[in-house]
Amino acid sequence: MWSKIRKGNPIFKLFLWIYAIISVYPLVWMLFYSLKDNNEIFVTNPFGFPTNLRFENYTSAISQFNVPKYFMNSVFVTVITVVGTIVLAVMFAYSAARLRWRGKTIAQMYIVIGMFVPVQVIMIPLAILVRDFNLTNTYSSLIIPYIAFNISFSSMVFYGFFRTIPNELEESACLDGANIYQTFYKIMLPLVKPSIATMVIFVFLAAWNEYPIALMLISDEALKTLPLGLQFFQGQFTTNWGAMGAAMTIASLPTVLVYILFSEQVEKAMTVGSAVKG
């Protein structure tokens, strides 16, 4: 009886593999067709491995369309967003968790509200705000909201970490004559390094893939990020599916690589919020 249960039901085991195919095959199919020509995609070999690897699809995605431009914009916006979010959130969380001032609990709760505000809902006032600050069609119009929207969650995670550190560390730093900035930079920051790594991954994924804000605030071709730039591909590329697949593969590469390399870190980063948000 016991061993029968331990072995598990074969039907469920089979389902594990069937769903794995459903989950991954569309991506494999995309990768395959990024290396095929239309004839092979549509008629001769729609499902399988390309008979003839056509890397020229990648060359045409890069040379004829704005893929490198979008890619660089995504890199730029993402890097600044990650750095800005982490710096602001760590500072804020440290101050709210460790320093002594009135209203710090309220301040922390105030920032956490941001986790419950869906971006889409405040799109209209946000667009007006950006227009009133004359920021429409600038990098700042993406970077500033991205930082503001990621700051709630990041500072909440850092806050939790800072609360677990014993008070003696600061006391001895104080007795040794360090000032508060040195204590923060030399003693506290190294202690929260693991959570910084987690949040870097989280913010990187969020910023790299962000779509609604970019859609609203950016219309200038030269400033588009990948998720925005690729949105009208279907129309442009109906004649050339291979190049379309190539562009999509290029756009997905950074996040997929990060995931494959740090899969457990990424899953942790993505699911760390569940404890609080429900």
Partner: peptide, 26 residues
């Protein structure tokens, strides 16, 4: 730990940014 300058420096940027970009539009 009650260093006023440090508290303002650490806290204010986040509060201001969050208020303008998230709370005000909400």
């Amino acid at each position: 730990l009650g260093n006023k300058t440090a508290i303002l420096l650490f806290t204010l940027p986040t509060i201001v940014l969050f208020t303008i970009i998230v709370m005000w539009p909400t």
